[in-house]
Design a protein around this nucleic acid. Structure first.
Length: 692
RNA sequence: GCCACUGUAGCUCAGUGGUAGAGCGCACCCUUGGUAAGGGUGAGGUCGUGAGUUCAAAUCUCACCAGCGGCUCCA
């Protein structure tokens, strides 16, 4: 007879099997009504699951004890909402075949195969939502039943969906001896679905929902398999939470770097220039320049040497590196030499012949560089190197070009031309550990000064089952071990992920999320034993023999484009003084103060501060509003009172009221210091009570 | 590359077959002001591109280009 241990440690004993709901009732009717599911020995289950043996039981309600949303409750809710949506869709489009419909962190989806002559369109959403509302209003129970595998598979077969049959086979292969089904209502009478569950007790528990969007997906994520339609929705226990969720999405949109990029004039993408090609407008260029200067200074401290290399290189270079022709698909088409084209043409070469030549790599010409390493390798190799010269650290803000699929392009975060803060370190095997640590400390320095702490670290290892990697397994083992050890010294948690290595070596990546929760890889540090091999690099050791150096590729920002895209969202466009394109705007109260405002602006310009003046014929209230909307760090209001005392009235971004008046000279030196120290010293600090 | 949606003034958007609209921004005028929008006047658009249907297309159809969301990909 079951003894049930509750989360507070108390034990309830029963002399007969009971459902979790019964247990809840034994505690209180209100609790039982509030329950949507339960955890039995930590496993999420239906509320009416019958308990026969001793176990721990935790009841799942909408909110946890500390009044937070319970992720388990939302999981049950959204999984159930997916069923309701699927039923509604099948009512409206009877030929639709269900594939897979899981809950997600904030939403759920259902992958569905629609008949070719009746695809789903956004215009159908309203009708589907209306059907869903009906089903919810009927408050039908989610009823689980289980069939022996043989019997169950017969049932699934009779329904004639290869997708569900596949799901059943997979469940079986995973070791399941039976198949479970959920009827929305009464089995055999109401709509039902092969599903492992669990669900909320009944459809009526779905308080608020919304169908969000349509997307296409591939069956099993395989692009050669069937194309499915993925319908996204979200659900909450009440309308208020749904509303709050939708408002959060709206707020996130305002932080989106593509929206802010336009509003603050940071960058421009022009379709006549080409998709995925960023034009840095003056404001964005300031941010990029500041960051580049900052990192250059850090690199100098670490003993790097800056180099410059061209944007193209001969195809032979990339044959040696392995980029051409094996990664032709993700590179821009080669630039073919004119003489070679003429020769081909004289030989009667057709377009398809040419395409074949390119695919096989049998042409001469140049390529837009997809990576900087081959050029840097050639700089290393341009002179003999002694072990005493190592490590050789070559750095370049190098622009590279990659042919990303059109559907992948995204603002500044996924582009076809981008500038990496790239460097390649050539060192002895013994030096790897120390050099890796140097790279990682650089990354930490940068993230710290920018206040970016919300990132994760991934150690990318090779996939043991794949053959896409070049190089000796023994070298890979060494390199992977070096990455692991370096990651351990970083002092932040990291995950090891097989299959995430580059084709030439393992790596450590820094990954951040954008405003809508998408992950982007920023900085990366990679160990490479292979390119030195391919290019036959060497140095002379103490033994007077030739030895092979090891390369480390590293780019702590990743690319200027992606990094600044993420940075715009990180700061929500409100950049600190050292990065702000417009650091100070002077707002004369009226035309009468224009002359003094000009003087103030000149004083700031004289010390290198980026200041402008708003001499529009408007009231100061309007100028403040405009200046605030442009997220300018400091607005200086200057009127006759200020002119008389050679002072400025200071308003800092993000503060409701102004900070007060300050002598002009003091402000100039204070903001200069804030700029120089990247915010460690701050104009605001001068307004502490003691200073005034 | 795939599926859906979107493309109208510098920006944000309304307009669903019959003479192109609003707000902001811009120019000019009035106003000369003290901490988040003073008032007025005006300029500004081949409605993404190309074809088709129609007496008539921003609006309907097709193709292409681009953007957005997702899938796949990211050496």
């Amino acid at each position: 007879m079951p003894q049930i241990t509750l989360p507070d440690g108390s034990i309830k004993s029963f002399d007969h099997p009971v459902s979790a709901f019964d247990v809840a009732m034994s505690i209180g009717e209100r609790l039982a009504k509030a329950c949507v599911g339960c955890l039995i020995d930590e496993e999420l289950c239906d509320l009416n699951t019958v308990i026969e043996n001793d176990c721990t039981l935790s009841l799942v309600t909408e909110k946890t004890r500390d009044k937070q949303d319970d992720p388990n409750a939302l999981f049950l809710l959204r999984h159930s909402a997916a069923h309701v949506m699927a039923e509604a869709i099948q009512r409206i489009i009877p030929g639709a075949m269900l594939v897979y419909g899981p809950p997600l962190e904030n939403s759920f989806y259902y992958d569905i195969a629609f008949p070719e002559d009746r695809p789903l369109r956004e215009g159908d959403f309203e009708a589907i939502e209306a059907e869903m509302s009906k089903i919810i209003k009927e408050d039908r129970p989610f009823t689980r039943y289980e069939l022996e595998y043989a019997e169950g598979i017969k049932k699934v077969e009779s329904e004639g969906s290869k997708y569900k049959l596949d799901n059943a086979h997979r469940a079986h292969e995973a070791g399941s001896l039976s198949l479970t089904f959920y009827a929305t209502g009464e089995p055999g009478k109401d709509w039902e679905d092969l599903c492992r569950g669990p669900h909320v007790p009944s459809t009526g528990r779905i308080g608020a929902f919304k169908i969000m969007s349509l997307a296409s997906s591939y069956w099993h994520g395989d692009e050669n398999s069937d194309r499915l339609t993925r319908v996204y929705g979200t659900a909450f226990f009440n309308k208020k939470d749904l509303k709050a969720h939708l408002e959060r999405l709206e707020e996130a949109k305002k932080r989106d770097h593509r929206v802010l990029g336009k509003k603050l004039h940071l960058f421009h993408i022009d379709e006549t220039v080409g998709q995925g090609l960023i034009l840095w407008t003056p404001n964005g260029a300031v941010i990029r320049k500041e960051l580049q200067d900052f990192i250059s200074a850090e690199l100098t401290k670490q003993g790097y040497h800056e180099v410059f290399t061209p944007h193209i290189g001969k195809l032979d270079l990339y044959r040696t590196s392995g980029h051409f022709p094996y990664y032709a698909e993700s590179q821009f088409t080669p630039l073919i030499e004119r003489d070679f084209m003429v020769k081909l043409s004289d030989e009667g070469c057709s377009c398809s012949h040419l395409s074949n030549y390119i695919n096989k790599g049998e042409i001469d010409g140049f390529m837009l560089k997809p990576m900087n390493c081959p050029h840097h390798i050639k700089i290393y190799d341009s002179q003999p190197r002694s072990y005493k010269d190592l490590p050789v650290r070559l750095a370049e803000f190098g622009t590279v070009y990659r042919w990303e699929q059109s559907g992948e392009l995204n603002g500044m975060t996924r582009v076809r031309g981008f500038t990496q803060d790239d460097a390649h370190l050539f060192c002895t095997p013994d030096q790897i550990g120390q050099e890796m640590q140097g790279c990682l400390s650089l990354v930490k320095t940068i993230f710290n000064i920018l206040g970016m702490s919300d990132y994760r670290v991934r150690v990318g290892l090779r996939d043991p089952d794949s053959c896409k990697y070049t190089g000796e397994p023994a070298n890979w083992d060494k390199a992977e071990q070096a990455c692991r050890e370096a990651a351990q010294t970083l002092g932040v948690p990291f995950t090891e992920e097989p299959g995430e290595a580059a084709f030439y070596g393992p790596k450590i990546d820094f990954i951040v999320k954008d405003v809508i929760g998408r992950e982007w890889q920023l900085g990366t540090v990679q160990v490479d034993y292979n390119l030195p091999e391919r290019f036959d690099l060497s140095y002379i050791g103490a033994d007077n023999e030739k030895h092979r150096p090891v390369m480390i590729h590293r780019a702590p920002f990743g690319s200027m484009e992606r990094f600044i895209g993420v940075l715009i969202e990180h700061f929500a466009g409100a950049f600190p003084v050292w990065l702000a394109p417009e650091q100070v705007r002077v707002l004369p109260i009226s035309e009468k103060s224009n002359e003094y405002a000009h003087e103030v602006m000149s004083a700031l310009h004289a010390v290198g501060i980026r200041a402008t003046m708003d001499n529009h014929d408007q009231r100061v209230q309007a100028k403040i509003k405009n200046g605030s909307e442009m997220k300018i760090p400091y607005l200086l209001i200057v009127g006759p009172r200020d002119a008389q005392s050679r002072a400025v009235s200071v308003r800092a971004f993000g503060t409701e009221k102004d900070l007060g008046q300050m002598p002009l000279d003091n402000f100039v030196s204070a903001i200069r210091e804030e700029y120089r120290t990247k915010g460690r010293s701050c104009v605001r600090d001068r307004f502490t009570p003691t200073a005034v």
